[in-house]
Structures are given as structure tokens and as C-alpha cells.
Amino acid sequence: MARNTYQSRLNQLEEDVLYLSELAAERVRFALDALEDKDERKAQEVIEGDHEINRIYLDLEQDCIDLLALQQPVAGDLRFIAASFKIITDLERIGDLATNLAQYAIDAENDVYAEVDIRRIGDAALDMVDQAMDAYETEDTDLCRSVAERDDDLDAMCDSASESIVRDLMTGDDFEGDGDLDPETALVDVRRLLLTVRDLERIGDHAVNVAARTLYMIDNDDSLLF
């Protein structure tokens, strides 16, 4: 095989993108733990770790630019680099959303609301990220389409959760305590909970983006991009 250095740089890029994805997913997992356990220390760890994700993201962005400028990739190599260039942006955003979730965990220390199953929604979103990255690693087009299909389920879970939160706010049901709920406190807590659900839904959207770019990378198929 010719262009050995070039090929090894392509292989390294793939490894690094996969590493970034593992790191971002781990941060989301930690943030979910922090939300569930109201663990401020773990939440802080996630927030501080975002610098590492940003640094790796910028390094990989530069690697992609270097490969484009210096190696003039074409065909499958070009699609791989173009897809990776876009995918790392989604992974970095997933890292940002993990930071949001961690911040909610810190702010929600005395949250009055407890009924929505954030863990279940978060696990569903993370499964989509894992599946999208599996598709990227194994070049599996079926997995790409499966991620896109699963997004509907995640959206439905998030819609249902948001409706439940708002309905409960309006009826005053299911709030902790004896019914003497301070409306201002409830509003802040509900808003935070809605943002939590929204951010988990966005993680799913980023997973779909990764799957869409991966499908383009594998088959030059842009059908999931729209």
C-alpha cells in the first residue's frame, strides 16, 4: 500500500474521533449520575473536564484541516475526513450538554420535583450516541438508519416528560412536601427540569447528526442529512 504516512494519519484520526466520543459519552454518564445522586463533586468534575474535550476537539479540527490541505484527499478518504470534521463538532456539543446537565445537578440540590425518569431518557440518548459511533467505527449503514429511527422514540419520551412536568406544575400534583409549594421555587425547578429534558433530547439529535454524516461517509448517501 502506498502513502503509508497518510494512511496512518487517517487511522489515527479515526482512533482520536472514537476517543473523543468515549470521553463525551462518559461525561454525559457522569452528569446523569450527578443528577440522580445530587452529587456536586461529580458534577464539578464534569464541568472542569470540558476543557479537555474542547482541547481534543480543536486538535482534531486542525488534524482534519492539515489532511485536507496537505494530502488532498479524494473519494472515500475525502468523505471520511469531511464526515469526521463534522462529527467532532457534534461530539464537542455533546460535551457542552454534559456540562449543562452537571450544572443543573449542582443547582438542583434542593429540587422539589422528583418524578420524571431522567436516567431512562439519558440512557436512551447515550445508547444512540454509542450506536452512531459503532456505525462510524464499523461502517455499518443499518446502524446509521437505526439511530435515526430511534430518535423518534427519544423525542416522544422527552415530549411526554415535558408535558408531565408542566401538567404537574399546573395541578400541583406530585410535588414533594405537603402542598405548601412556593410558586417561585417550583418555577425555577420546573424550568431547570425542562432544560434537562431538552438537553437530553439534543444529545439524541447530535447522535442522529453523527449517524447522518457516517452514512454519507460510507455510501455517499445524504438521505439522513435532511
Binding site: R3, Q7, V74, A75, G76, D77, L78, R79, N220
Partner: peptide
């Protein structure tokens, strides 16, 4: 088409420098 998504694997291998 040739430089983004050629039909032939031999063309893909040639233009990406995997042989030739």
C-alpha cells in the same frame, strides 16, 4: 463523481494513492 464517489474500487484505490 470520480473524485468524491467513484464506482470502481480500482479507481478509488488509484486516486487515493493506495496503489499506482
Amino acid at each position: 463523481k470520480i473524485f468524491e464517489n467513484p464506482d470502481s474500487q480500482r479507481v478509488e484505490d488509484y486516486i487515493t494513492g493506495k496503489f499506482g
